[in-house]
C-alpha cells in the first residue's frame, strides 16, 4: 500500500496542457508578424547588445515574408488562447484553487528562503501546501501576464474602436512593445519552468498528467520552523 496526494484536478491539467500548444502557435505566428517590423533591441544609443532577432534565427526557422500566414494563425488561435485562459480563471476562482495558487502575506519573504534553498545555500525550505512561495509568485505573475497579453493584444488589434484600451497601455506603439515584452517573459518563464520540472523529478512531472503524486514515506525531511518544534513534513514539491 502507498499513500498518494491528489495534487492537480483534471481541469487544471486540461487547461495546462491545452494552453501549451496554443501558446506555441501564438508565439510562432507572432514571430511571423513581428518580422515585418522587427524594430526592438536591447542596447543604448547606437549600441546594440541584442537585436530582436538576428537574421540567422530568421533564416534558420524560415520566418521572412510570412506576415499574412502569421496574422491568419494569430487571429484564429487567439480565440482558443482567450477561451482557455478565461475558463481557467473562472475555474480557479470557483474551485477555490486560487487559495493554493495566489501569494499570501508571507509569500514575498518566504520566496527568498525558497530560492536560497533551491540554490543549496539554505538547508531548509519553509513549509508549504501545494505550491511553495516562489511558485505562488511565479505562477500568479504568469497568469497575470496572460491576462495582459490578451489586453495588449486587443489594444493593437483594435486601436481605433478600443482607443481607450490602447490609451491605457500608453498608445499603439507602446502596446505593441508591451505585447512583445510579455512574450519574452513567457519564453523566459518556460525555460525556468522546464528546468525546475526536470530538477523536481519524475513524481512531480507525472502528477501534471495523472493528477496524483505518490508520497514517499521513507524520504522525509525535517523542516526547522523558527520558534516551533521541528515537525516532520513529507516533501511534496
Amino acid at each position: 500500500m502507498k499513500k498518494i496526494v491528489e495534487k492537480h484536478p483534471l481541469a487544471i491539467r486540461w487547461f495546462h496542457w491545452v494552453n501549451f500548444p496554443i501558446l506555441c502557435i501564438m508565439i510562432w505566428s507572432g514571430l511571423l508578424i513581428y518580422w515585418a517590423n522587427d524594430v526592438y533591441k536591447l542596447g543604448w544609443n547606437d549600441k546594440t547588445i541584442l537585436k530582436f532577432f538576428p537574421q540567422s534565427m530568421y533564416d534558420a526557422f524560415k520566418i521572412p515574408f510570412r506576415l499574412a500566414e502569421g496574422m491568419s494563425l494569430h487571429f484564429v488561435f487567439m480565440w482558443l488562447f482567450a477561451i482557455n485562459g478565461l475558463a481557467y480563471f473562472i475555474y480557479i476562482f470557483f474551485s477555490r484553487e486560487y487559495k493554493l495558487l495566489f501569494p499570501n502575506r508571507n509569500s514575498i519573504k518566504e520566496s527568498w528562503l525558497v530560492i536560497l534553498h533551491d540554490l543549496h545555500i539554505r538547508k531548509t525550505a519553509p513549509p508549504q501546501k501545494k505550491y511553495n512561495a516562489a511558485q505562488r509568485l511565479a505562477y500568479t505573475t504568469i497568469i497575470f501576464c496572460g491576462f495582459l497579453m490578451l489586453l495588449t493584444g486587443l489594444a493593437i488589434y483594435k486601436p481605433a474602436q478600443l482607443n481607450w484600451l490602447c490609451t491605457i497601455f500608453g498608445g499603439y506603439e507602446w502596446a505593441r512593445a508591451e505585447h512583445f515584452i510579455i512574450t519574452i517573459i513567457f519564453v523566459l518563464f518556460f525555460v525556468v519552468h522546464v528546468a525546475q520540472v526536470v530538477l523536481a523529478g519524475w513524481n512531480n512531472f507525472s502528477a501534471m498528467i495523472t493528477g496524483f503524486e505518490v508520497v514517499k514515506l521513507k524520504k522525509t525531511e525535517t523542516h526547522i520552523i523558527p520558534d516551533q518544534v521541528p515537525t516532520e513534513i513529507s516533501v511534496t514539491e
Partner: peptide
C-alpha cells in the same frame, strides 16, 4: 484548503498512471 490524501494499492497507482499517460 488542503490537498486530499489517499492510501491505495500499487496496482491502482500503476493502472491509473498507464491510463493517464495513454
Amino acid at each position: 484548503m488542503d490537498q486530499k490524501e489517499k492510501v491505495v494499492s500499487e496496482k491502482y497507482i500503476r493502472n491509473k498512471t498507464i491510463v493517464a499517460f495513454g
